[in-house]
Design a protein around this nucleic acid. Sequence first.
DNA 1: ACCTGAACACCGTTCAAGT
DNA 2: ACCTGAACACCGTTCAAGT
Lengths: 223, 223
Amino acid sequence: MPDHTRRTDRRAEALTKDVIVETAIAILDTQGVPGLTFRALAKQLATGSGAIYWHVADKDALLAAATDRIIAEALPRSVEGTSPREVIRALAMAVFDTLETHPWVGAQLSGDPWQYAVLRILEGVGAQLDALGVSEANRFNAATALLSFILGLAGQYALRARRLAAGANRAEILGAIAAQWSQLDPKRHPFVRQVAAQLADHDDREQFLAGIDLILAGIAGSD
Amino acid sequence: MPDHTRRTDRRAEALTKDVIVETAIAILDTQGVPGLTFRALAKQLATGSGAIYWHVADKDALLAAATDRIIAEALPRSVEGTSPREVIRALAMAVFDTLETHPWVGAQLSGDPWQYAVLRILEGVGAQLDALGVSEANRFNAATALLSFILGLAGQYALRARRLAAGANRAEILGAIAAQWSQLDPKRHPFVRQVAAQLADHDDREQFLAGIDLILAGIAGSD
DNA sequence: ACCTGAACACCGTTCAAGT
DNA sequence: ACCTGAACACCGTTCAAGT
């Protein structure tokens, strides 16, 4: 009560799950998943590694909690005055942009699709389908198709993020993959070879939205 | 040459990458990813753990090699006399069915989307798009949309597989998730609550094919 | 060239002991 | 109730030493 608690990176108040998750996110953003160890986390929190287990069940729970906080903050609360299609696009783009800022989220989302963070996305997507005129019988398949696509892309960008963290830049990574692809046997891999050229200079957001639009077009067409 | 080498589960010939990968797959199928350690693998191969590193760079490379072998064997060589749409469906179902037999493949595919096994799938899908009449400009986006959907689903079934390995059965797992979903706040999660009922008794293959069809319909419609 | 297996540098998690 | 930190039971990977 008397002394002004020093606000360095150390902790003065009681340990809470919130502080733990917040600190974990900071480590994940800077060091990636391999950097998040209970020892590193405890050190940053100026506590013992065992103390964390009083607030969090285990490492999986910690990662899920961190992912959920990121996704909860990233999803647009409500998008007024726009079409259902626009809302779904905005939602998908919110997820996409989050993956750029917090690359580890991609692996976490695609690796544990029943976690609460994923359910938030499913809810956001599903809520629009009624307005889109999708029959109740088709809603389940339509929503999970959109969700699977989003999670699939999440996995893809997750790996690229891992390589980015390793020091390379986007052009180098895609250039290396494109070079590798274009050396493939043309007989066995004609398509991939042909597409290799587009890989290096395609726009990620555009590709992502194109996929969303394809599925939305399919939903509109088949109902 | 003289004595008939005893064919127990031990190895008599020289260690090769093929034997290593084969043994790794056997462990993965029975014990899952956590069961695959270099110590367990070495013991099964009746060799030292260091010996494996002479043939395989590291654990990631071993997992990628195992996944590639599974996918290479699973993909239909060529499907004669059927429409491009049927070929894509057959290809997707081949991947899907593989995930049931080798559950760990799902996590591996979605976790490392640039590995060779994924490229095989991309090639298989992409090769059909020309025949489907998709313009060259749209082929890249169409193929990656299908691929992302397949990989997204792969991740989803991967987790369920992990839970199945832990001893539960399909009905229990989905029942538990459905029960959890239906307890959600109806105000905040109306869609997920509504869909919870369909979760327990939906057909996975049907859901998967429905997703493929939605994307194919979108591809056909937007071109 | 290929294999051995001890050793290194880590992990997540537990738990008696403290406050 | 909450925290400490040593201890346990593992990992992947390396590497001198063997054949």
